[in-house]
């Protein structure tokens, strides 16, 4: 264990008015690990992601990316350091085609100050590879706003993957998807390269237990348990506050 964790947070706090959305979160995710973050609605999962990506500053605490303190860095700089995110609520370029949505992610690495032509055949081919991977082959020229809910989730994932991230944050990737779509997207996530570190927030426990190496349970802004899927499944407290209900549902 010489290498620093891919992602480590220490004592994160964040409140909104009187609500302690994050109330002392510490966790360390190893390089290549698949970590699930679970917990009831309002537990602070999305807020944690917002703090990790720099979209919301923490009230206190630190975030380290591959050993470097990145607390307070701008979202765009964190993205440039290899952090990508799939949003719980899709953040797409609505009037652009699926292909152009992905192309904007691909083009980010070289920066926007280029007067060379966008929409070349080479660029399209590269974007289409990502669309095909997430199951959007044949939908390349459909506008984002014209896609079905499931397809929009797939596009969200394609955009994040096209960033070639080192750490990937997935916020409820299967939310609102049909069982077939859920199966195929979780298979895709399971097949992602092991050099990639993944944090996944998910309410579908089948998906969580299939994908996760370790699970952190968040409740009212605090981690109340952490361990392997088997350990977490056996935890009394976790069953009381969350799993009991989540597994019945």
């Amino acid at each position: 264990m010489s290498a620093a964790p891919a992602l480590a947070v220490e004592g994160l706090h964040r409140s909104f008015g009187g609500i302690h959305a994050l109330d002392g979160v510490s966790l360390a995710v190893a390089d290549g690990e698949r970590r699930a973050i679970i917990g009831p609605n309002g537990a602070g999962k999305t807020t944690l992601f917002n703090v990790l990506t720099g979209e919301i500053p923490p009230s206190s605490g630190t975030v380290r990316l591959e050993g470097t303190d990145v607390t307070g860095l701008a979202t765009s700089d964190l993205a440039r350091r290899g952090l990508a995110r799939m949003y719980q609520r899709n953040e797409l370029f609505e009037p652009l085609t699926a292909r152009e949505n992905v192309a904007l992610a691909l083009a980010a690495a070289k920066g926007p100050y280029r007067l060379s032509r966008a929409r070349t055949s080479a660029e399209s081919a590269e974007a289409d590879v990502y669309l095909e991977r997430v199951g959007l082959a044949g939908r390349e020229t459909a506008r984002a706003r014209g896609l079905s809910h499931g397809e929009r989730r797939q596009l969200e994932l394609a955009i994040a993957l096209a960033q070639s991230p080192r750490v990937l944050l997935l916020d409820e990737p299967t939310a609102g998807m049909s069982p077939a779509e859920t199966a195929s997207i979780s298979r895709l996530i399971g097949e992602l390269d092991r050099s990639l570190t993944i944090l996944i927030v998910e309410h579908d426990m089948d998906v969580v237990f299939r994908l996760a190496d370790r699970i952190t349970v968040l409740h009212e802004g605090r981690p109340i348990a952490e361990g392997t899927p088997a350990e977490v499944r056996g935890d009394r407290l976790v069953n009381d506050v969350y799993l009991g209900k989540a597994l019945e549902a």
């Binding site: 765009s76 995110r85 953040e91 797409l92």
Partner: peptide, 14 residues
């Protein structure tokens, strides 16, 4: 991209 979704553009590294 900025016009349509500045937040996503930032998340992409722009």
């Amino acid at each position: 991209g900025v016009r349509e979704n500045e937040r996503r553009m930032r998340a992409l590294g722009y």
